[in-house]
Nucleic acid binder design. Sequence first.
DNA 1: CTATTGTGTCAACGAAGCTGACCCAACAGG
DNA 2: CCTGTTGGGTCAGCTTCGTTGACACAATAG
Lengths: 178, 178
Amino acid sequence: MTAMPESPDIKPVGAGRQLLFLREEELRLAQDLLFFGYRDFTAGPDAILAELNMGRAHHRVLHFIGRRPGVTVGDLLAILGITKQSLGRVLTPLIDEGYIVQVPGRNDRRQRLLSLTPKGQELERRLFERQREWVMRAYREAGPVAVEGFRRVMRGLMGAEAREQLDRPTGVSPKSAA
Amino acid sequence: MTAMPESPDIKPVGAGRQLLFLREEELRLAQDLLFFGYRDFTAGPDAILAELNMGRAHHRVLHFIGRRPGVTVGDLLAILGITKQSLGRVLTPLIDEGYIVQVPGRNDRRQRLLSLTPKGQELERRLFERQREWVMRAYREAGPVAVEGFRRVMRGLMGAEAREQLDRPTGVSPKSAA
DNA sequence: CTATTGTGTCAACGAAGCTGACCCAACAGG
DNA sequence: CCTGTTGGGTCAGCTTCGTTGACACAATAG
């Protein structure tokens, strides 16, 4: 059912319909998988967050700051792809409640370099572990080859911008080369 | 940040720490991929929908009704995993504007069997084609083996409930569904 | 005839996006 | 030194899409 040649141009009479159908069903399946998969992937952390009166947006902020300690507000905005105001509504409480600290940039003192406090690391880790179990289960069941395939496809689903961000060393952004 | 050596050569004894680290990075990468991938996967349809003053929720309704014509409201609620009220706010306008029709069930006349009108099919197809291009690009770049792996992992990321729903015959129902 | 079920709907709330406008401090260039 | 730009913060208001709770009503089941 999944075995089909890579030939988008060939339309042998009779087989064309079949191919077309398979492709369409294939794609619709992908839509289903992404919807259900993503939903259930986020369900674990969501439950923890709800108890703390937080949402998915808080998790994302914790995650990406944890991933790139010392990131600037501007870079974080670029990574998340949201507006300053949207970020603010989530970031400010996280700072106020001691999950995140900001220190002025050493080169440019206007910048606020963000990093997790121990408290922030702890929460991020809790959320991470929850998702880790979930993903590891899927990885184990699917096997290493499948995992590699998963990564390749997900990468392809990302836009060019996102791909660049992902490829950027998990430390400082070389954007300030200006 | 901890500066870590990139030397995956060593695998034998004493590699525990290294392995642990790799696993963690592996998992964090999965988080990134799912966030960016899902976001960009939905971006295309979102743009079309915005022009029609609709949102992602409308797309999901069109998608799942298209996938299972004649589905009942109750089943749709179960598939989407949302409340009646949430669905109503999206479903009612779609019916009012002629994208979806409901016909009373022949076995149980309380039920409203939902299906797409030609207008609804047309819109669903537009949205589908947009996403199709995007996914096909990713599939083509990744290759068939990767696609199979992607499917296996995504399936594993789904909860048991969702998996059952997915396995239920798609688009059948002209029979007697209960 | 009564209880339950399938569906619809009102009202209020929360999370997380958005735009527009404006402010301040720090940097950069003349 | 003065001025314009940039990094960041904030107020105000709007939208989408999820939630709970309550109630209505027709149809089905017993």
